[in-house]
Amino acid sequence: MNNRIGFKKLTKMENFSVIVIIMLMILVMQFITGNYISLDNFSVLCKTLAIYTIIGVSQMINISCGGMNVSIGATGGLSAVIAAWLMYSHNCNIFLAFLAGVAVGILCGLLNGYLINRIGGVGVASFLITLATTSIFSSLVLIISNGRGIATVNSSFRAIGNTKLFGFLPSSAFFVLAVLIIIYWVYKKTRVGRQMLAFGANPKAAKLYGVDQLKILLSANVIASILASLAGLLLIMRVGSAQVDIGNDWMLSSFAAPLIGGTRQAGGKVNVFGVLLGAIVLTLISNALVFMGVDAYWQELVNGVVILVIMGLDQLRSVTGRNKE
């Protein structure tokens, strides 16, 4: 009896279905390959997972206040290339290079936030502005690196990305954990977090009761862009070079991770740890495709289908929920 109630509670948990899907996927993969559940594979997954989670959280912040940011990939790419370029061509200290990368993110965020506010706030405005800034940032990447990228990244910088604790836990896992905890805390406990959610849920009411649109858009875009840079920097730490195409394939995944994780599409409600689950789903899919020898070209197609299915299920759930009421 007690058990049944416990199970019911469990099924009512917001992310129950996602967790079940993840477990099923792992089991199926283990069944097919025989050696899927291993520490080695775990640390490989962690690295991809880190990028998906951080860009997912970045997009979640934009979605939370009613907007979107399609320039996450370009921002991450620009930060990565500038940091790598400073280290390679100017022998810059790795710590300073890292900070410079983050600073690039802050600038990109300020630019996006300011422009979005100027042309009207949220929704379509944020899409158009970030679409435009995407071309600017991507083009800067090509200009700075002469179109070739930066082939080698300082070895100690690379070492940070390739350190494993206890032999299997990559350093990026700690970055991710820190990001999740900080952002969770921001949304739960700070004024800026609550204001972002209020603005996302009802911008007009929020403004009438003391929320400043410009401040909120700047905060959201700056925090989101810092995370995008972080993702870019983590990526070059891991692969050891800054290619010009960093971030090109981030856009869809950045939306997919938070939406799978239960963030409200229209803004106003987030599920920070849900992004991690969403990212796990995306990671497992891409990993499974590799394992099964499916062409990499299929990846985006599968991601697209997954997003559509998730959104369809979401719609279904809200409809059945309403009928029950």
């Binding site: 004024r191 959610l197 849920a201 009802n202 009761y209 003391g210 909120i216």
Partner: peptide, 23 residues
């Protein structure tokens, strides 16, 4: 704010205004 609770809606002015600070 539809996604907020009764308490947060009533005390919304405690959260709005300046950006820094805890809730």
């Amino acid at each position: 704010i539809d996604t907020f609770t009764v308490a947060e809606n009533i005390c919304f002015m405690e959260e709005s205004g300046k950006l820094s600070g805890k809730v």
